[in-house]
Amino acid sequence: MFNWDIVRQYLFSGLFIHAAWTTLWIAVISQISGVIIGLFLALMRMSRYRWLSLPARFYIWIFRGSPLLVQLLLLYFGIPEVFPGLVPYITVYSAALIAFSFNEGAYMAEIVRAGITSVDPGQMEAAKSLGMRYALATRRIILPQAARVIVPPLGNEFNNMLKTTSLASVIGLFELTYTASVYGAQTFSYFELLVVATFYYLILTTVWGYIQNYIERRMDPNRLTATELKAQKSWAQRMMGFRSEPGGFAGKEFR
């Protein structure tokens, strides 16, 4: 019998609030590191030097081609067996963070690459013709424009990440899913506590959905007025605040 009282009892308990917090910070840190790893992987992969592009390809091949669950298990149970010296460093937290970040890096690499590829090649040429070197041009000219293409799929990736953290339950990390199953088993109320966990997942993904919406609307060129744009000064804001007509970058227009 489903017992609503148990749901009510656990819904706003410190236990689940803490578990939700764990889920959240694991997801946030993994996503941020994943983006950073992905950025470097993408740049490596697009390099004309094979000694840079081949390792990146290999990395992406490995991490996209095998299950995250297996990667997590390998890291947590396999690595300490082969490298006993690493035992003190492999905790449930470090294993989860490393596995999620590395895996996410491979996916982000493809997203970043698509973003960079979407920028008009004329932009790099213009930057070069002004004496900018590749690194400076990438940072100042290409990436801010690629960001516009990268951000929407990045939002979806983070939505996924919030739920992917549940895999860490197999190594005993007390995030939402593991908390629900452990306490559910103890009190024979699996169903009720999994419903509580689901509730928290929905809260997290819904709030993120609103944030994602807000960011994407801010990046929508047609929403911004000139004064709003003028007020934007920080790099992050510039990244998201620049404009172009739908369907193409300014500069391509007016032909």
Binding site: G122, Q123, A126, K128, S129, G131, R238, F242
Partner: peptide, 21 residues
């Protein structure tokens, strides 16, 4: 890059940076 910085190039399609004023 140093030599290029001394040569101005004007493109057929302008290639202004769209995220900058």
């Amino acid at each position: 890059a140093r030599i290029r910085s001394q040569i101005g190039f004007v493109f057929q399609r302008f290639n202004l940076f769209p995220h900058m004023t």
